[in-house]
Design a protein around this nucleic acid. Structure first.
Lengths: 341, 341
DNA sequence: TACGTGCAGGAAAACAGTTTCCGAAGGTGG
DNA sequence: CCACCTTCGGAAACTGTTTTCCTGCACGTA
């Protein structure tokens, strides 16, 4: 095994016949050096395969060019587009990211916070799975923290999250615009803020249009296909003339569509169905493919990372909650209604 | 903003009335110190909220306690259980993980490799999305690298991957044991090794049992529900008496199940269906819930990380491919066959 | 010839720890 | 009473890099 020691500035200096300080200057385009000297140093560095030790650099500069993402939701699918957005913003700056999964365990979170403290990360993104208020991350004062989806209980903290009310409005307007008027809503647990906000957005639009919810209530339940199937039965029982269902997730929507098919109801011919999440494999694999509200998690991640970078750069970022607008992914499940079924 | 400087050993030393060397010894249980002195230092450190700068520690020790995971498959779902396994193994050792997404771009990969080189990570896990042979990661000699799923073209490298042949065998045996004999196979693209191996496992068991593939061929196609739907039609057309379908993914299986239902064929009553991946929301949300082969990605991640830790610790790890056995997640789609349909 | 001036590059001090070596007490035995 | 050993803790070197200061040296001018 060629266990040769990795070369340092000293090795480069020796090979180029200069001092270490000169090597640093040459490699970083600093100071006053003859072009010939600079070239000689660069050549020596290349020949040795020299890579500056970033630990030493960070120790000296106080910047590590690392950011951590602390998440409770790795397993879940939400983390993926989010991370993509984060990397979009961070990658440009040569910032590396530590991924820390707390598995919803406060002890693990604390443990990670300590470690990150010691590693002197430049900033931290705390990503929750749900919209809720949480205690601020216990971390050394001075390290910028941005909260994502779940917000900090400290109003001075900056938080970026999805616009669920807006998503509900978007879905509602779209259904109305497609000529639907008897709209039902099947969604997740009432104890979570996300489904409540989506429902609020929907109801607001319905109110404005002088309409009311098909079935007379929001069907709160679970985030599962099975709940979608069961709730669809309930909804159709309560309001057989329903002509659209807004679902709180694509999974629920899949279940709803299945029940509708079992009942020989056509989608979108008889009933339009709209989902939430734009979880590609779920929504696109559905028959018919699902129109769905995309909460724009990638953008959420991008905004979070960008603002974090601002804070790291010392720009003042005022606290508060920044919401990223959702958008509508149009597919077939809300297509044109058949006039004569 | 309370921008107070973060405390260093020097601050702790001053407060405890000792020298910096003593602080280090006290905090790390090294050297010969009176218990009283040690306690005094520990108290001072706690009062100041002292956290040792791990950059300085690493610079000195040569170990960073960081590992990087370079992946082409973040967006995909495979990364999640894999990362879970990696963290299982790494977490115990206080090792932090850098997550690098190459997005399948060799330039990005190279760029990441350079950065990791400079960060002096202790080791690297290179995770591919598919079983294939790839060029070794271009990284400074000496840094241990473990390959996951995709293997290195250098036989001296260590690689851990899934057992797709074994998975196919598992599925086939299970179907046979449930009394099925006319088994079809619908799967992903033929150009990938994974689906070919799964098919090989299946065929091997069928051969041994003196059976042949329903429909006379493997139905290679795409990793989509839609392909599952279409291929199921083709299969039933070619072999109407098919009594089981082994699918190369849970998505395909969902499509197959849908076509079967459209055709009024009961699952598992008339036809058993078995998937691959054990992608929970897909498989469990299916009606009936899908029996499926779990490729054990979490275990793959664990093994990879554990061996990497071994390599970092200096233990010789011999190159070659280590495969992790798959297991069967039993749900309802392969339940007992109805004798009289 | 003496004296600024400016350029090129070296020496050394940071950064924040750990570790090795060494010396000063204090106690013990001859 | 003195030599010696142990115990405790300090001083300094070291990790690899950047940065500040400083010193030669060549050059131009008086």
């Amino acid at each position: 095994m060629s266990q040769q020691r990795v070369p340092t500035v000293r090795d480069v200096a020796a090979r180029a016949g200069v001092s270490v300080g000169t090597v640093s200057k040459a490699l970083n385009n600093r100071g006053q050096l003859r072009e010939e000297t600079r070239a000689r140093v660069v050549a020596a560095a290349r020949e040795l395969g020299f890579r500056p030790n970033s630990l030493a650099q960070s120790l000296q500069s106080g910047r590590t060019y690392t950011v951590a993402v602390i998440t409770t939701d790795r397993f879940g699918r939400f983390g993926n587009p989010l991370m993509l957005g984060v990397e979009d913003a961070l990658g440009a700056d040569r910032v590396s990211v530590f991924l820390c999964d707390t598995r919803d365990d406060p002890i693990r979170e604390h443990h990670h916070a300590e470690t990150l403290d010691e590693r002197r990360v430049d900033g931290i993104i705390v990503a929750g799975r749900r919209k809720q208020t949480r205690a601020p991350l216990a971390v050394a004062s001075g390290v910028p923290v941005v909260y994502v989806i779940a917000q900090s209980s400290d109003p001075a903290d900056f938080c970026v999250t999805t616009d669920d009310i807006g998503g509900g409005i978007l879905a509602a307007r779209h259904l109305l615009a497609s000529g639907r008027t008897r709209i039902g809503h099947i969604t997740g647990p009432e104890r979570f803020a996300d489904p409540r906000e989506r429902a609020a957005g929907l109801c607001q639009v319905l109110d404005d249009a002088g309409l009311s919810l098909a079935g007379g209530q929001v069907f709160y339940g679970e985030w599962s296909e099975d709940w979608g199937r069961r709730a669809a039965e309930m909804l159709l029982h309560a309001a057989p003339d329903t002509d659209a269902v807004f679902c709180g997730s694509d999974q629920i929507a899949r279940g709803v569509v299945e029940t509708l098919r079992d009942r020989r109801l056509r989608v979108p011919g008889d009933i339009a169905v709209i989902g939430f999440d734009n979880w590609e494999p779920m929504a696109a694999g559905c028959r018919p493919p699902l129109t769905t509200v995309d909460p724009n998690l990638r953008e959420v991640g991008q905004v979070a990372a960008t603002r974090l970078l601002d804070m790291i750069a010392g720009q003042p970022v005022e606290g508060g909650v920044h919401t990223v607008p959702a958008w509508l992914m149009l597919r077939e499940s809300t297509g044109v209604r058949l006039i004569e079924p």
